[in-house]
Design a protein around this nucleic acid. Structure first.
Lengths: 196, 196
DNA sequence: GTTGTTTTGTACCTATAAGTACAGTATGCC
DNA sequence: GGCATACTGTACTTATAGGTACAAAACAAC
């Protein structure tokens, strides 16, 4: 164990609480009092452990995307691309109803638009959204190579469409859509995707 | 003409400039200095003419939705529902490239998530998004009644799907997607919609 | 127990947010 | 011209934002 007075809170738990605040209120909408209260610590502890608000956000974001990536990669490893996409869209629809997490997607509502001070956060989120799209695209390219998707399809375009639907579902979830509502959306989106 | 010193700026023009700031930075991200500078007026003039920041936002929002509604109603009056939806989605794709307006959609990025002080604005935006969805749903119900859509389709679900795609396109546009990118998304979405 | 180290809590700092008081100025009306 | 009225510009107020100084407290090592 390290010398000095021991930390009285668990860093990961505190980060999870911060994540939920950012998720619900966005980067700019989450105030320091909001964060410290949710984390159960006071301001200097937050700064000592996480740097500052932006670093805290990035660490919470890392946690969020790590989790999302894990689920995504597991789903995309499904051998049939059609099944993978079904699992992905229905999974998002069902997951959005989880009462333990805020509605919507942090990558979308964290800072879709913002003031000048948060531009770098906005860019970071756009990059991470692009990474999600790229992962889907790579999976579709694999499907094309395997003949699991008609060769007429463009992996890039289809990946963008799927990402678009996912992001639209995030907006609707944040607006209060139910899991059923979103499952119906997923079902319609899947009609566009070649069954082959 | 009314008595007293005449206003030195045009209210509608100033409102348009304010609209663009809100559109680009969101309700919370737009600061008073951002607004007054873009509008070319000073603070007391803003308060005298528009009330306060929130009222200014609502008036800008009215202007925005009025315009959007006009275009939407025109497009939805298209006799064939399939043609209407094509025009709507491709129109949004093309319109998002307009260099005179900020990227994305004010209804989505105005305040998707925000601090406590802006909750009422967030709710207002959600309501207006719901109005857009309702307009599409009514048009689809009409199509169903006319046999212009397979009777197996649910107007509510399909309207939600189309709204989802539109909102997803708004997110992608805000992230820098090109008109071509978005046209490809629109094309994929239209594949889901029965040709009948 | 003393020392060195790290965390905690109170109380602060500076910057900026939204909003306004008030004097000055440009008009219409008589 | 003189008066009422409404807008403009400067300079302010209050509240809150993010961030920090510093003393008290809790530990490890010796």
């Amino acid at each position: 164990m390290t010398a000095g007075r021991p930390r009285e809170f668990n860093t990961d738990e505190a980060l999870d609480h911060a994540l939920k605040v950012f998720w619900a209120k966005g980067y700019e909408g989450a105030s320091l009092p909001d964060l410290t209260e949710a984390m159960g610590i006071n301001r200097p502890s937050l700064y000592a452990a996480f740097g500052n608000k932006e670093e805290l956000f990035r660490k919470a974001l890392d946690r969020y995307t790590e989790e999302a990536k894990k689920k995504r990669d597991e789903i995309l490893s499904e051998p049939k691309v059609r099944v993978a996409l079904e699992k992905m869209l229905y999974g998002i629809a069902d997951g959005s109803a989880c009462p333990k997490s805020p509605r919507g997607c942090l990558l979308v509502q964290g800072a879709l638009s913002c003031g000048d001070a948060a531009q770098s956060v906005k860019m970071e989120l756009a990059q991470r959204r692009a990474q999600g799209e790229a992962a889907i695209r790579r999976r579709l390219e694999k499907a094309l190579a395997e003949g699991d998707l008609p060769s007429s399809a463009s992996a890039a375009d289809l990946a963008r469409f799927i990402t678009c639907v996912i992001q639209g579902m995030a907006v609707q979830s944040a607006s209060g859509a139910s899991a059923e509502d979103l499952r119906a959306v997923a079902a319609w989106a899947l009609k566009a995707i070649p069954a082959k």
